[in-house]
Design a protein around this nucleic acid. Structure first.
Lengths: 240, 240
DNA sequence: GAGTGGTCTAGACCACGGT
DNA sequence: CCGTGGTCTAGACCACTCC
């Protein structure tokens, strides 16, 4: 399943936790015991534990041990949230018919005013792309995206209609490495009323994000605006 | 400043990056060179780099190096976002007058219906607390919180009016370790209209969170509902 | 092929929690 | 006091990038 040793240990421990193997103590075996159990070094065991910590499954407390977190109702909701650009549709009980409608795709030069808003240099050649996400015949979200032309090369409507990320993964010689975003609730504007199935609502959720490639360059800036009551975004925070 | 060696290295590197020392290459020195520079082991250097990665300052690519991320307009906004329960007020140009108004504080027994909603066991003794956050005379957010009585002990109105977290930190024998949350946009309900300065808006942002102590126990469940156009929540995601 | 970060090992001492 | 996780060292080999 996993060739990396610490990844393998991580998976086994996660499964064992899930199966309730440590329910009595609510503690993982000590690192020393895990070293023996998996015939590995302590560093490797600690890497596996790090993964569990990052995921919110355990915390480790010096002098006490590695403690399994109590179950939360938020866990289930936040599970496999990868479905739709990091935000998860609430209507996932039925198989979704997700359609992407391309409203506009054009080439632009980044203006002085636009530049600070999207973190692209002035005069950069870019694609401007506007898309609506229609789920089960409701327009639940739309995106305004900017892509740097010199990084993504050629974009056309058929690529934009399918997955641009698939296109990047399969056809381009860089990788998508990280994403910075902020999240807001805003009053709806004219475009929102035109594009979205807002019903009586007069607000939208807004996610504004920059996406980086494996050279540390921003190649995409996207503003996603989505209707209320349909999406959730999972968060996890470690204190200290 | 920092007694931990890797913390010290992290701070120095972050400052150097900020000062533009590596602007030409957009690369940190190789790990081997950092080992020499800081007279440390490679593991220690890698821990420092790990901190920079977690913070979205660099990415590391095998065979290429540790790459400094291009600056994003979202960085500045997301900076020091610790101000208000993890969400940052947009009106931070002036010093804020944040007041907390306690609406209700009572002891309850968790019912069968409530239990799955807040991840507290049925019949658990808990405090129910309702508070409004008034910022510059506007009611911008309110919280409904549940605290496990056997963990937080005694809560009273004067504690609730000030910071409960300060009370925990100073007076109780456990630590706050992690927080799981989800974020939604919802239509406003009656309570929202009563409690918040919604103006014309008919939606609210909702953050629902569980907070853990250093025994892995959930001791708090809070639902925060806040007005549109006033808050942002920063997000950061590493791919792979 | 040379240089990079990723993984892994086998030790050591320290700080903290619980007894 | 003992056992725990936190930090740190000094090495090794591998997978990947780039020339």
């Amino acid at each position: 399943m996993a060739q990396k040793k610490f990844d393998n240990i991580y998976n086994i421990l996660k499964q064992e936790i899930y199966d309730g193997k440590y329910n009595e103590t609510k503690l993982l075996p000590t690192e020393e015991n895990l070293v023996k159990k998996f015939d590995s070094s302590r560093n490797t065991v600690r890497q596996a534990i790090k993964l569990l910590k990052d995921e919110g499954v355990v915390i480790s407390v010096k002098g006490r041990g590695v403690i399994i977190l109590e179950k939360s109702n938020l866990d289930q909701i936040a599970l496999n949230f990868k479905s739709f650009d990091g935000i998860k549709s609430l209507s996932s009980s039925h198989p979704l018919s997700i359609k992407t409608k391309v409203i506009e795709l054009k080439e632009i030069k980044v203006s002085e005013e636009l530049s600070p808003l999207i973190s692209f240099p002035i005069n950069e050649d870019a694609f401007y792309l506007e898309r609506i996400r229609v789920i089960n015949n409701e327009a639940l979200a739309y995106d305004i995206s900017y892509f740097k032309k010199d990084i993504v090369g050629g974009l056309n409507e058929s690529i934009a209609k399918e997955s641009i990320y698939e296109y990047i993964k399969n056809s381009l010689n860089f990788k998508i490495m990280s994403k910075k975003a902020i999240l807001k609730v805003e009053s709806a504007n004219k475009k929102d009323y035109n594009n979205l199935s807002l019903n009586e609502s007069n607000c939208v959720g807004v996610i504004e994000s920059n996406v980086y490639n494996d050279f540390g360059q921003i190649f995409e800036h996207t503003i996603t605006r989505y209707v209320p009551n349909r999406y959730i975004i999972p968060l996890f925070e470690q204190i200290n």
